[in-house]
Simulated assay, not measured.
Amino acid sequence: MTIKTAPYKVAKEFVQQLVCFAREQGMPVDTVLSRAGIELGALEGQPAYVSGPILERYLAAMLKMVPDPLPGLYASRWRVATFFGLVGFLAQTSSTLGVMLNTLVQVEPLVGDTGKTRIHHVPGEIVVSWHCQFTNPDVLSHASDFILSTFVGCITSAARPGVSVVRSVHLQHAAPEQAELLQRYIDVFGCPVYFGESENRIVLPNDVFDLPLPGADPQLHEMLENHARKLMEERTKASRFVDLVRSRLHQQLQAGAASREALAAEFGMSGRTLHRKLQDDGTSYREILDELRLQRARKLLVESDLSIQQVGELSGFDEGQSFTRWFRQLTGNSPSEFRHRC
């Protein structure tokens, strides 16, 4: 098995909405953020991104405090526009279901690239699939519940009462053991739900693409689309510097000599200036370093027979215990557990 090592990220606005959601549920947000290693102040300022692993740590910490056993299904009752900002409003103002789905795929980068939505047609059906880069199995399961139930909520809200729109929902994670929890899935999705599938997907009949949406507003939708395009262009430019930093730091790690000051010197700036520029783009030297180390560690754990101690050393750690503690904090699993799962 080959581990995908591409970096992934999520928009700050989405993380801010998750924080608001947690506060409204009466959860100790400061504790959750502290466990995830997130500074609330870092979520303020200009729109940018938070690294995917940081979000995953936040969700892992939050899940331990949520009393509902199916938090993904519960959170999907939140208004789409609230959680997804501009992307949500684009969905609400679309003229037809087909326009909504295609628009969501086009502007999905505004939310981030932690998840990827695809639409493809098969005879008589439309398949909407969602692939996620999370590695923590609990986070991945509940995130899949949230995204697919949100999609289904958007789709069914466009249908006339009594009209069946969604044929089936397929989830990668296992079915819950309790009968009452299994019934909740059926109640939320309103259609047959299958577990242990090869991918997370929703199956629709072909003719629903032309289904009109109740909130259609062509003029507002066009304005929002233009704004979305400009935002994506701006964020693409901002991310180029981060990608360059990531590439140079990767080279340093390969050579066994990663240093923030040395990295800053390569760009002709001080360490403080490098920190500020990365912060403006929604990340930090530490986040990128952790991201690259984690990519290397995962790859070695799965594709080699090296001991945990050796993997830790090649990932930049002198002590095996420090490596194990760091790996568990970022993924929710020990290196041995991760290797066993893969």
Rank of each mutant, 00 (worst) to 15 (best):
D280N: 06
E222T: 12
H121T: 11
S34F: 08
L182C: 02
W130P: 03
K230L: 02
R57A: 13
P161D: 07
L18G: 09
E56D: 07
D207F: 13
H250W: 15
S34R: 09
Q16Y: 10
A91P: 04
V99Y: 12
L40G: 06
C191D: 10
R298M: 06
H275D: 01
Q172Y: 11
H173F: 14
A262D: 01
T117H: 12
A75P: 12
R35K: 09
L204Q: 12
V193A: 10
P335F: 00
M269S: 08
N333P: 04
Y49T: 07
A297N: 00
Q133I: 01
T331V: 08
T31A: 14
P109L: 00
G320A: 13
Q254F: 07
E125R: 12
V80T: 12
V122L: 14
E44W: 10
G72W: 15
F151I: 11
E225Q: 14
L244I: 12
S259E: 00
A60K: 04
K299H: 13
K9Y: 14
Q46K: 09
A257K: 08
K277Y: 00
P47I: 15
E24W: 05
N102P: 03
P69T: 08
S259W: 00
Q321A: 01
S270P: 05
F209V: 03
Y194M: 04
V165R: 08
A42L: 08
T117I: 13
Q219N: 10
E303A: 03
K277I: 00
L204V: 06
S322L: 15
F317Y: 15
V87Y: 04
E233M: 06
T283E: 14
S129W: 02
L97R: 12
G52A: 05
E313I: 03
L33E: 09
V203Q: 10
H227G: 06
L300R: 02
S284C: 13
Q321H: 08
R341I: 00
G72V: 09
I119S: 08
E108G: 01
A158V: 10
H227W: 08
Q178M: 13
A11D: 14
L73H: 05
R118W: 10
A297Q: 02
G196Y: 11
R260A: 04
S94W: 03
R248S: 03
